[in-house]
């Protein structure tokens, strides 16, 4: 008798492939985005089945929730300024197919070359977890053992928001109409709860699934709610605060690394006695930066002065 969950896993796998094909095949952009969101939710479920709740949380919060919101917002922008669809040349299509095939072959080779019995790095992580300052192996890896990679992930977000603020010109500056009084009431109800959940996700990352990216995504949802309900309107005067929010995480992260390095250690080699404090400090500021950056990405443009005549209620 096979494991009954095997049937579920097989169905999940088939559904994932079917959804991936459907996302690419469907013609309507809105349907495409909705299918992609469902695909993300199913992927999160698959990560849960693979016993990777950290990845599942990140996939659900960032890969599905926020990415979906960003795509829907982009669709709104495109609809506001309709442009003739640019035909894609056959060469570009084939180049893309070639790149995808290369990624696929690379992954296949990597998978084939790895023996299934290989222990991986898990024993080394388990051996050194006491020196990392946290009890959860994923957080230990992300914020301590490979902190440099994590710093670069935050830099990617900063690069994205710089690009968005630079290129997003010429789109109407008048704020979109807010979603109504009932939605505002819901926002007032949900906002405090999301703040608690985001902070909890950050705090719990020390010993359970959670952490800066998941907490930051939850807190970014606060920004989305505020923007959609019209309770907050980005003003040009708020630009310095936003810029501070964007760079705060990277600045503190890098300063900690440099300070540690100045004490005769390697960068990111936190002294074990202070590792917990330093990791919590870094995670806290990185969470703020991620939240501010993601919310600003959703707004999609640098806040500029709006002439009174263009504002709508």
């Amino acid at each position: 008798m096979a494991d009954p969950l095997l049937i579920f896993d097989a169905l999940l796998g088939v559904a994932l492939i079917a959804l991936a094909i459907a996302v690419l095949v469907v013609r309507d952009r809105f349907a495409m985005i909705v299918l992609f969101i469902i695909f993300g939710l199913m992927t999160a479920l698959a990560w849960v089945r693979l016993s990777a709740p950290d990845v599942a949380l990140a996939e659900a919060a960032i890969g599905t929730g926020l990415a979906g919101a960003l795509m829907l917002k982009t669709l709104h922008h495109i609809r506001a300024a309709p442009a003739a669809p640019v035909p894609v040349s056959v060469g570009v299509v084939f180049a893309n197919m070639g790149f995808c095939a290369m990624v696929f072959v690379g992954l296949a080779i990597a998978f084939m070359a790895t023996s299934l019995e290989a222990p991986g790095l898990a024993p080394q992580v388990a051996q050194n977890i006491d020196a990392s300052g946290v009890a959860h192996p994923v957080t230990a890896v992300l914020l301590n053992f490979r902190a440099y990679d994590t710093l670069m992930e935050v830099v990617v977000l900063l690069a994205a928001i710089i690009a968005v603020w630079m290129i997003e010109r010429g789109i109407e500056q008048a704020p979109a109409r807010h979603l109504g009084e009932i939605y505002r009431g819901f926002a007032r109800l949900a906002l405090p709860a999301i703040v608690v959940i985001g902070t909890y996700l950050l705090w719990v990352g020390a010993y359970a699934p959670g952490g800066a990216f998941q907490g930051g995504a939850a807190l970014a949802a606060v920004g989305l709610l505020l923007l959609l309900s019209g309770l907050y309107r980005p003003q040009p005067a708020h630009r310095p605060i936003a810029r501070l929010g964007f760079v705060l995480g990277i600045a503190v992260f890098a300063s900690v690394a440099l300070l540690v390095a100045s004490g005769g250690r390697l960068p990111f080699e936190y002294p074990p006695a202070h590792a917990k404090t330093l990791i919590l400090l870094i995670e806290g500021v990185v969470t703020i930066s991620i939240a501010v950056t993601l919310a600003a990405l959703f707004h999609g443009r640098e806040p500029e002065a709006i002439p009174v005549s263009e504002t709508r209620a």
């Binding site: 979603l179 109504g180 009932i182 939605y183 819901f186 109800l189 949900a190 709860a193």
Partner: peptide, 20 residues
């Protein structure tokens, strides 16, 4: 119970927004 409350509230709001 908290999850139930928030899912119920948000699905009601979603229904309202779509109908609107």
């Amino acid at each position: 119970l908290l999850i139930w409350f928030f899912v119920a509230a948000s699905s009601a709001i979603c229904g309202h927004l779509i109908a609107r």
